[in-house]
Design a protein around this nucleic acid. Structure first.
Lengths: 151, 151
DNA sequence: TAGCAAGTCTATAAAATTTGTAGATTAAAT
DNA sequence: ATTTAATCTACAAATTTTATAGACTTGCTA
C-alpha cells in the first residue's frame, strides 16, 4: 500500500500533467479539485519541486507546473521522493540501501535473493508507468463514458 | 517496503520449511536462530496458525510446523495475513477492498486503472513465489559457497 | 496425579510514522 | 505599497508498528 501522501502526490501530478505547458496552477485549485488538505498538499508539492519534478512561481499569476514532460515522470521517481524505498526491504534497495539489523550474513541470505527478484519485477512496472499513462487512461475512460451515453 | 513483522514471518517460515515433515520446531529455537524477539514471534506464528498456514502442538515435544507443503505457501498468502492488502490502494484490492475517502467517482478514476495494472503485475510475482523458492535459493547459495571455497 | 514444558491469551506501552494544522516569512506582480 | 501566492518552522493529533509482561491452558511423562 502506498501512503495517502503518495496518492495525493500522484493525483496532484495528474492535474498538473493535464495542464502541462499551459501555465501555472494554484495549490488551492488542486487541493479543492482533488479534495486534498491544502497545507498538506503544500508540503508534498514543495518536496516534488525540490526534487526536480515541479517548478514553482510565487506571487500573482504564480503556482505550480511540471518541470519535465508527463512521459518522463515515472511512478518510481514520484514514489521514491514521497514514500522512500520501493524495494520490499532495505537490503535490496537500489536508492536507499541499508543493512537489515536482524540479518547475519547478507551475501547468503536466501530471503534476500527472492526479495530482489520481487523488487525487479516491481521496478519494471513502476519505471515504465508515467503520468502519460494516467492521462491516457483518463481519455480512455472519457471515451467509454461518451459511447455509453450514446446507447 | 514490507514490515519487520512480515520479514520475521518469512524468515520463520523458511526455517519451518526446511524442517517440513520432520516434526515440530520450538518458537524459542526459531527466535534464537533468526534473531527475532520471542514474544513478538509468538504472535506472528499464532496468526499464521489461525490462518491455516501452520500447525502447533503444546506440551513437551511440541512446537510449530507447516500445515501445507512449502510450494503451496505463497508470499501473497503470507503477506496478506501479516501485512494486510498487497494492492497499492484499497480501491484496487481484491481481498481488502474499500473505497478511497478522497475519491469522487471510482469508475472513472484514471489513477485507479493504472494502480490496478500495478497490482496485477505485483500479484503475478507474489502468487508464484513460495517458500519452495526460498529453499531453492538457499541451496543454490550454499553451492556457490562450496565452489568458491575450492578456488 | 504432580510437575514440567510449551503454546495461548489479555493487556499494555514505548516508539515510530503518518497525517494534518497554524502562523509567520519571502518573493513576485501591479 | 499592496496583494497574491509560495515557503519555512514548529507543532500536534492520530495511527501503526514493534515489543514486553504475566497469567492461563494444554499435553506429556514420571
Amino acid at each position: 500500500m502506498i501512503s495517502k501522501k503518495a496518492k495525493y502526490a500522484l493525483k496532484a501530478l495528474k492535474v498538473l500533467a493535464e495542464k502541462y505547458a499551459k501555465g501555472p496552477v494554484l495549490i488551492s485549485e488542486i487541493a479543492m479539485q482533488e479534495r486534498i488538505p491544502k497545507k498538506f498538499l503544500e508540503a508534498i508539492l514543495l518536496d516534488l519541486r525540490n526534487n526536480g519534478v515541479l517548478q514553482s512561481q510565487k506571487g500573482k499569476g504564480g503556482g505550480y507546473m511540471l518541470r519535465i514532460p508527463p512521459e518522463e515522470v515515472s511512478f518510481s521517481k514520484v514514489l521514491r521522493i514521497i514514500d522512500g524505498p520501493i524495494a520490499p526491504a532495505l537490503c535490496v534497495s537500489m536508492f536507499f540501501y541499508g543493512k537489515c539489523d536482524d540479518c547475519k550474513e547478507e551475501e547468503t541470505c536466501s530471503l534476500r535473493s527472492v526479495l530482489a527478484k520481487w523488487r525487479d519485477a516491481n521496478l519494471a512496472v513502476l519505471d515504465n508507468t508515467t503520468l502519460a499513462d494516467v492521462l491516457k487512461a483518463e481519455s480512455e475512460s472519457r471515451m467509454n463514458l461518451d459511447s455509453s451515453s450514446v446507447n
